[in-house]
């Protein structure tokens, strides 16, 4: 139904459908362990999720065999780039590490590091621009949320 102009192959569709099916199945099995009134809704919902996952799996399987004969996937183009240059991978790693840093370094410092890294990754060349924005943004955000919002963001060992 949709145009597949993006470099997304049906292979990824297949993986995701498999993920959905397994998620649904695991959740379904767990739902049987709930007390009777607490599983009235979860059982049909997870069952539907499993079935829809299987349907989607089947659809993408058909689509993939069709594409294989056409021999075109846009994925191999990325293979030559080393992993630390792959923006998708590195962005995901960065935002996954962020919550870990938060506990030790506090909001301001970990946000500063994340900003510097993400700005360089997205191609900001000037170190001046990078440092100005990555210093001002976390401080301003911290200030806004803590003064107006009255919240209490995590602090590092140095007190901010």
């Amino acid at each position: 139904m949709s145009k597949k102009s993006k470099a997304v192959s049906s292979q990824h569709e297949l993986y995701f459908a498999a993920f959905v099916t397994i998620l649904g199945l695991v959740a379904l099995v767990m739902a049987f362990g709930f007390s009777p009134r607490a599983r009235i809704l979860p059982i049909p919902v997870t069952l539907l999720l499993t079935i829809m996952g299987l349907v989607q799996f089947w659809n993408s399987w058909k689509q993939m065999t069709f594409e294989k004969s056409n021999k075109d996937t846009g994925i191999s183009a990325n293979a030559t780039v080393p992993f630390y240059r792959n923006p998708l991978l590195m962005t995901i790693i960065c935002i996954l590490i962020y919550p870990l840093l938060l506990k030790f370094l506090g909001f301001i410092v970990s946000s500063l590091l994340a900003m510097v890294y993400l700005m360089r990754l997205r191609g900001v060349k000037s170190w001046f621009t990078t440092s100005v924005f990555s210093i001002i943004t976390p401080i301003l955000v911290y200030y806004l949320f803590n003064v107006i919002g009255g919240t209490n963001f995590p602090k590092g060992p140095w007190g901010f």
Binding site: V132, F133, I136, L140, Y143, L144, V147, I148
Partner: peptide
Amino acid sequence: KGLLLILVGLLIFSLSG
């Protein structure tokens, strides 16, 4: 312009602070 905006913002909030 971005810098100016941020500075004005900072000023307002330091006042409210």
